[in-house]
Design a protein around this nucleic acid. Structure first.
Length: 472
RNA sequence: GGCGCCAUAGAACAGCGGUUAGUUCGGGGGGCUCUCAAUCCCCAGACAGGAGUUCAACUCUCCUUGGCGCUACCA
């Protein structure tokens, strides 16, 4: 089995393209096939080298590996023109000199008549002399393929038999007036030259398929097997766009999603899987892969589920792996490396994405705490809660050996003297010393902040509370 | 306008002619825990509509409706 992934370098790798790439990888692994990477850059005006590099590095990061390539269509133009010349000489394609205005007029008329829009084939009636004459006049022209008025069908591995009527297809352009081949022509030539057996691509290509089959037919070549995977859609069921969420895989990389989670999520999205165990490697999914398990309807991108899955993968990381992967997200944190590492490991389970580490470290960095008292309205209503805090601070001030252990003993002792719930006691201390209701385990947090610092913070907190208290 | 594809809870999937229509994420509630997370328990929530076929239809057929894709000298 020979497969290909063929992105066009007009931007960074999009979520939808990534899914296609992952599906190709999945099928390739499942069938011991070869995946070929081909950069579809026939449109010079939109393709950039920067995009190519971005796509290549993102694919690498994702772990999508290809056995051959990358090949660039822009460097294969001679090949395409060979095929185009063949089609012209056999009378299966012809030069078209119609202007933009003519084409537009044609279209409006068709729209008016409520019939399908497209070229009416008028230039195919030009005689050889007329064509030669126009060319000698240096008139710009494109080359169009004659599409015979017959049924064009293919058996899609996902959709089943799909049939189109050639009569409604119209003669498509295969060579632009600037001399470059169009997508449909280049795809057919390359898929044939590269011996591609299975074309797995997005559903947006379904309507291109009959056009490509027409080219295969004209060339006397056998078309590969097609599998069109349904598109990924946004929360409002429309095509996924920046309106909905980040659409570039790079964005997810920057936020601290793990490639394994992304690969897992996208290979199971729109795939009939065992819902009881969704955490699977691509290799495991490949073991039971079948095209019939791919859903026929589009799938909605669910960031919450991806995030959940990412957390699952983060907690599976070893301490060392976690630190290595999180390192790049810790650069801007004004703390010593050792401390960050400590906090990171303490909060491993609660990281949804690696970049969360910044927020978790915040209370350990800033000396200016903003106590948003709205968060503790309920807590402050608990009886003797502030007394407990005051007493805790007093004891803390005279504590000789500040350690994890002594802190805990001090806390428990004070708790024994007061009739306060442990959770309330812990929360008021947590809030007073960090300004947050969420933090790594309390005693670790206090210990890391240091005796002096927590005393200062908690006292500051107490100074701010009383005036606020009257509000409630 | 034309052509094509699709249709089970908010989301992703099960169900393949007879089920109290199931699982996972999400939502709500609760237990446990110093918080969050994790985990455990509980709750809400779906077969788009209409005709057929059949003893029986979420499941098969057709129609309608709705959604999406394509309709470029983009890919």
């Amino acid at each position: 089995m020979r497969l290909r992934f063929a992105p066009s370098p007009t931007g960074s790798l999009h979520v939808g393209s990534a899914r296609t790439a992952i599906m190709n990888q999945l099928v390739s692994v499942a069938n011991n096939g070869t995946l070929i990477l081909r950069i579809e850059d026939t449109d010079v005006s939109r393709s950039t080298e920067e995009s190519t590099n971005a796509i290549l590095s993102t694919l690498k990061w994702l772990g999508v590996s290809y056995g051959e390539g990358p090949f660039f269509q822009s460097s294969r133009e001679k090949l395409y023109s060979k095929y185009i010349k063949k089609l012209i000489s056999e009378g299966k394609a012809y030069c078209c000199f119609c202007t933009q205005e003519e084409l537009e007029e044609m279209r409006t008329k068709q729209l008016h008549k409520h019939i399908s829009t497209g070229y009416d084939g008028r230039c195919s009636k030009l005689s050889q002399e007329e064509v030669a004459e126009k060319i000698s006049q240096n008139l710009p022209y494109v080359v169009r393929l004659k599409i015979p008025p017959e049924k064009l069908m293919f058996n899609d591995l996902i959709k089943g038999i799909v049939e189109f009527d050639g009569k409604l297809l119209h003669d498509i352009i295969i060579l632009r007036s600037n001399g470059s081949p169009t997508y449909n022509l280049a795809v057919v030539v390359d898929d044939h030259e590269m011996n591609i057996s299975h074309v797995i691509r997005g559903e947006d290509h379904v309507s291109n398929t009959p056009k490509q089959i027409a080219i295969y037919n004209a060339l006397g070549l056998e078309a590969p097997i097609f599998a069109h995977i349904p598109l990924i859609i946004g929360a409002d069921r429309s095509k996924l766009s920046k309106r909905h969420c980040d659409t570039a895989i790079e964005d997810y990389q920057k936020k601290g999603f793990l490639p394994e989670a992304l690969v897992n999520y996208f290979s199971l999205l729109g795939y009939s899987h065992d819902a009881n165990n969704e955490i699977m490697t691509l290799e495991n999914i490949a073991k039971t892969f079948s095209f019939s398990s791919i859903s026929k309807s589009p799938s909605m991108f669910d960031l919450k589920k991806l995030t959940w899955m990412n957390n699952q993968y983060i907690r599976m990381l070893s301490d060392k792996e976690l630190y290595d992967k999180a390192k790049s997200f810790c650069k801007d944190i004004p703390l010593e490396e050792k401390k960050i590492k400590k906090i990171l490991l303490l909060s491993k389970d609660q990281l949804k994405v690696l970049s969360d580490i910044k927020e978790i470290c915040a209370p350990f960095c800033s000396y200016k705490i903003d106590w948003d008292q709205k968060k503790v309205v309920k807590l402050l209503k608990k009886e003797r809660i502030l007394d407990f805090l005051k007493e805790f601070i007093e004891k803390l001030e005279i504590l000789q050996d500040f350690s994890l252990n002594s802190l805990e003993i001090l806390f428990d002792t004070q708790l024994g003297l007061d009739s306060i719930k442990k959770r309330d006691a812990a929360q008021i201390i947590r809030f007073a010393s960090t300004g947050k209701l969420i933090s790594p385990p309390l005693f670790d947090t206090l210990y890391l902040l240091g005796q002096q610092e927590i005393i200062i913070r908690m006292n500051q907190f107490l100074q701010e509370v009383p005036c606020q208290e009257k509000m409630y």
